[in-house]
Design a protein around this nucleic acid. Sequence first.
DNA 1: TTGCTCCTCACGTCACGTGAGGTGGC
DNA 2: TTGCTCCTCACGTCACGTGAGGTGGC
Lengths: 167, 167
Amino acid sequence: MARLSHSTVRTVRFYEETGVLQPAHRSEGGHRLFPHAELDKLVLVTDMRAAGLSLDEIKAVLLLKEGAPTGKAASSRALSALRQHVEDMSSRIEALSRLRDELAKAAQFLEHCGACENDAHFPDQCGNCRVMEDRARVPRAVRVLWAVDAPAAGGEDDQASDDDALP
Amino acid sequence: MARLSHSTVRTVRFYEETGVLQPAHRSEGGHRLFPHAELDKLVLVTDMRAAGLSLDEIKAVLLLKEGAPTGKAASSRALSALRQHVEDMSSRIEALSRLRDELAKAAQFLEHCGACENDAHFPDQCGNCRVMEDRARVPRAVRVLWAVDAPAAGGEDDQASDDDALP
DNA sequence: TTGCTCCTCACGTCACGTGAGGTGGC
DNA sequence: TTGCTCCTCACGTCACGTGAGGTGGC
């Protein structure tokens, strides 16, 4: 079960304890034996966990058919719940894509630094480099990773401009 | 800080404790005050957490510039690390998209059940419905959620066909 | 008989959440 | 002065991971 679902033995046991998987039958020696259908379920659960759903949400999905009086009622409940999850996942995909693109742009931007010979500026004065000149074109990730907005510590009136502000 | 980053006060404090954010200056009354640059960092960290990176991975990203002897060296290290993350995130996006599509197909498939009048089959015999006849066309999620492969419990030789198999 | 895998406690970990009881600052 | 927000412990939670010590099954 564990291998076939790309999860771990501990996870399988945990899912059985918490009721995600049906309590397995046991062999003479105490080994758990699961029906084939439970493997399909386990793989689906593993995928949903990887997608960021909590076990409670997943349990709710697995119980969508339960408790409804008719097939009609069950399917309509399941349908709207599934569509809600599809929407949520689409937002997550969008957010992930935005971050990925930002990191890709950051990497691309840092190519400018591949030819850097400006070792006087390097550790602390990168913010004063001509590469970082046009602040609006520096990706956020580069501003953060390269500490471009860190106090420059080079002027004369430095003391006064050290503006903490956010509680 | 918390509001502007869509995180919580507890999270901000936790990130300061664990060194993700610089130890803040304190006001007279003990309130934390952060430089503006830390907000950019916090937002980036929040986004990366939401993307599934661990705090250790995130700390590593934040320290990519550190410890390198020259700007050249730092940028090349940062570049390859960032590109690795971009690749990882692309795989995660693909996996998420696959699951989303599967759930969307499952919802679409369950529309067939919106007109179900077969209340004799409903709770336990959906697997015998003509809708589920062509087993290969039933999406995995529907097989699992509708318990289509569950023991039919209707034949005569049921006892023997209850084949547990997976340890 | 040797190896690998499974078993059951039971404590650890990661990233915060959640009160309890008290203070700051507009 | 009233409200809202911040503070520090300190314990709780979620989804498992990780030994310790022992057994099953090919």
